[in-house]
Amino acid sequence: MITVICGKEKGGHRLKLKGKVHKYGANVDTDAIIPARYLNVSEPKELAKHCMEDIDKDFVKKAKSGDVIMATTNFGCGSSREHAPLAIKAAGISCVIARTFARIFFRNAINIGLPLFECAEAVDNTENGDVLEIDLSSGRIKNLTRKMEFAAKPYPDFMAELISANGLIEYTKRVLAERRI
């Protein structure tokens, strides 16, 4: 059962993060995460300037490095733009917690190393502005504001392998190297 989903720190330290929650509702779509009108560039830093702009104008101002985005169901629905998780990551967000994610967004986030956790309990018991502490390797989520603790849904084995390879590009390198042998 592995729930780490982002790149391991050098030396394989357990990665704990702490941040404030920015909470949203259901079906936050990719046009809300990064409006298509800004997709004429693909640099993450540029994209991050407009993250969540159409549903939360002040998000970029409010979000501090390490903060957490939380949403209810179907987060990231809509387009396949990888710009969406890239913008979130470059805005300094350390992870996204939701009841469920849209399929393509889920793939993209894993592929680029933005940690995602599916945890209905955490979503139901956390309010906007609460502070969370998350253990990336175990998937334990602590709500420090409310003194509660939750366990995220574990990732399937294959995905854990992908994650431990540090994302799809590294995994592909490994697969190709094996093929050559």
């Binding site: 387009s79 396949s80 990888e82 393509i104 993209n108």
Partner: peptide, 26 residues
Amino acid sequence: GADSHTCTYGALGAFATGMGSTDIAA
């Protein structure tokens, strides 16, 4: 396809699905 509406080709009896850019790179 690195476009979510790649699923359009299902009309032809193909299994077609959208993914992200990194998937397409791999």
